[in-house]
C-alpha cells in the first residue's frame, strides 16, 4: 500500500527530510484545527499533492473503502455521544432517568463531528503515501538517520516498511493454503469464528518472520553491520535551494492554517 512508486516529480525529488518534517507538521495541525473549512482546504491540497506526485488516486479510494467501517463506527458513536442542540432522533431513554437518561439521542452536531473525525483519519492515512510512495526506502533510512536517529533504529524502521509487502504476499500464500484445505472462515465465517481462526494465520506468519529475521541478522553480521559507530553512504542527500523553499513555504502554510483557525 505504501510501496515506492517511481515517477520523476517535484515531490519525488524533494529531500526526504523536508517531506518528513512537513508530514509531521500537517499530522499535528489536523488535530489542532477545529474548522471544517480549513480541514477541507488541507484535504484538497493533499489531493493536489497526490496529482503532482502522479500517485494513483484510486489508492486513496481504496483506503476510503477500507476505512469505511471505522468511519461509520465513528459517526455513530459521535452522533450518540457528542451532544448538541439539533436533535434528529429523540432519546430512547428519557432525560429524567438517572445515569442513562438521554441515551439514544442522535444530534446533527454529533454526526458532523463524526464526519470531521473521519476526515482527520482519512487525511492522516492519505498523507503517509506522499512520503512512503515517493521516497525509496534507502533514502528514507538515510534521512531518518541524518535527522539524528541512531542508524540501527532507522534501519529497523525502514526494514519494517520494506517487509510489509513481503508479509502481504506471505499472508496471501497462507490464506491460499488454508482455502485449499476447505477453510472458508475468512470469507464466510462469523466474527467469532474469524477471531478464533486468527491464530492459524498468525502462527505461520510469526514463525516465518522469526526465521527470516534470524537469517537476516546472520547475513548482516557477515557484512559488518554496526562494525563502526558511523558509516558512509554510496549516495548522500543534500538540501538544495528547492528543498529549503518548499520547507519554508510548507511550514508557513501549515502553521498559518492553524493560526487562521484560532484567529478567524
Amino acid at each position: 500500500m505504501i510501496k515506492y512508486f517511481y515517477a520523476d516529480t517535484l515531490i519525488h525529488n524533494l529531500d526526504p527530510r523536508v517531506k518528513i518534517i512537513i508530514l509531521a507538521l500537517i499530522s499535528i495541525s489536523i488535530f489542532l484545527i477545529t474548522n471544517p473549512v480549513i480541514l477541507g482546504i488541507i484535504f484538497v491540497a493533499l489531493i493536489i499533492f497526490w496529482q503532482v506526485a502522479h500517485l494513483p488516486l484510486k489508492n486513496m479510494a481504496t483506503y476510503f473503502k477500507f476505512l469505511m467501517g471505522l468511519f461509520i463506527f465513528l459517526i455513530i458513536v459521535q452522533a450518540l455521544l457528542y451532544g448538541g442542540d439539533t436533535i434528529l432522533i429523540a432519546p430512547v431513554v428519557p432525560e429524567f432517568v438517572p445515569l442513562i437518561g438521554g441515551i439514544g439521542r442522535i444530534t446533527l452536531e454529533g454526526i458532523l463531528f463524526g464526519v470531521f473525525v473521519s476526515a482527520r483519519v482519512l487525511i492522516l492515512v492519505s498523507l503517509l503515501p506522499l512520503v512512503g510512495m515517493t521516497t525509496p526506502v534507502d533514502k528514507l533510512a538515510l534521512a531518518i538517520s541524518k535527522m539524528g536517529v541512531n542508524y540501527r533504529m532507522s534501519y529497523v524502521i525502514t526494514t519494517a516498511i520494506n517487509l510489509i509487502p513481503l508479509f502481504q504476499v506471505e499472508l496471501a500464500q497462507i490464506m491460499d493454503a488454508q482455502k485449499l484445505r476447505a477453510f472458508q472462515v475468512f470469507e464466510e465465517g462469523r466474527l467469532m469464528e474469524k477471531m478464533k481462526a486468527y491464530p492459524a494465520l498468525v502462527v505461520p506468519m510469526v514463525i516465518g518472520a522469526m526465521r527470516r529475521a534470524q537469517l537476516m541478522g546472520v547475513a548482516m553480521d557477515s557484512r559488518a553491520f554496526g562494525a563502526q559507530q558511523y558509516r558512509t553512504y554510496i549516495e548522500d542527500i543534500e538540501m538544495v535551494t528547492r528543498d529549503w523553499v518548499v520547507l519554508i513555504i510548507g511550514s508557513i502554510a501549515t502553521i498559518g492554517l492553524v493560526v487562521v483557525n484560532y484567529v478567524w
Binding site: 500464500q173 493454503a177 488454508q178 482455502k179 484445505r181 472458508q184 502462527v203 505461520p204 516465518g208
Partner: peptide, 23 residues
Amino acid sequence: VGIAEMSVKVGMVLQNPDNQLFA
C-alpha cells in the same frame, strides 16, 4: 464451483511448507 468444494477434487502441495503449517 467454490474453492471448498474443489478442495476435495484437487489438492495442492505448495512450495513453501512453512506457509502451510498452522496447527
